[in-house]
């Protein structure tokens, strides 16, 4: 599942749903909703992939995750252009390979870890997302977008569901950021033509 579906949150959820006996059709629908945020990642990365081959973009899409997105886009913004290693290294070496190996290890040894919370494993994902977010904050606009994304995400999660909340935060947070008059208009720091 780690190699084929390659989606951390969706895999976690799917395993829980399978264990609870939920129908596969429902699991697939929930996976679709849970992973809709990748459309936002994909759209945000698109300007940096201008001029790359269709095959490269198609393969890159399969390896697009929360982590590879955050690491790659921070790198692209830092260097001001697309950088192949800046995408493929985080996508493969720091995400796909460790995730697959860790999944395998979990299948083999998971029962030995009786209570993962005792080892702080549950805080790794949110801390990583927050830490990666910090790397993308370069001005007031990003800060406001992040704050609004978090607030909207939590509010909508409580009102509807966490899956919808994350998508709502990602969709509406940037609108709040755009309300900030931007000296640092992000388009100005966008990619140079390849």
């Amino acid at each position: 599942m780690s190699l084929i579906a390659f989606g951390g949150a969706a895999q976690f959820a799917a395993i829980g749903f399978v264990a609870s006996g939920l129908a596969w059709s429902a699991i697939v629908l929930l996976t679709l909703l849970l992973n809709l945020r990748h459309a936002l990642y994909s759209a945000a990365l698109a300007p940096w992939f201008r001029g790359r081959s269709l095959l490269e973009r198609a393969v890159a899409a399969h390896l697009l995750t929360d982590e590879s997105f955050a690491l790659a886009i921070a790198h692209f913004r830092r260097v001001g252009r697309f950088d192949a290693i800046g995408y493929w290294y985080p996508a493969i070496a720091t995400t796909l390979v460790p995730w697959s190996l860790a999944t395998f290890a979990g299948v083999m040894l998971g029962d030995a870890i009786v209570e993962p919370r005792r080892f702080g494993i549950d805080v790794i994902f949110p801390s990583a997302m927050a830490g990666l977010m910090v790397g993308l904050i370069s001005g007031r606009r990003e800060l406001v977008a992040a704050g609004a994304g978090a607030a909207i995400g939590v509010g909508v999660s409580l009102a509807i569901s966490p899956t919808i909340g994350v998508i709502a935060g990602g969709l509406l947070g940037p609108l709040a950021g755009l309300m900030i008059p931007g000296a640092e208009a992000a388009a100005n720091e966008g990619p140079r033509a390849p």
Binding site: M129, A145, G170
Partner: peptide, 10 residues
């Protein structure tokens, strides 16, 4: 701005 917003939401 999508990156910071969605990572913060997550």
């Amino acid at each position: 701005l999508v990156g910071p917003a969605i990572l913060a939401a997550l």
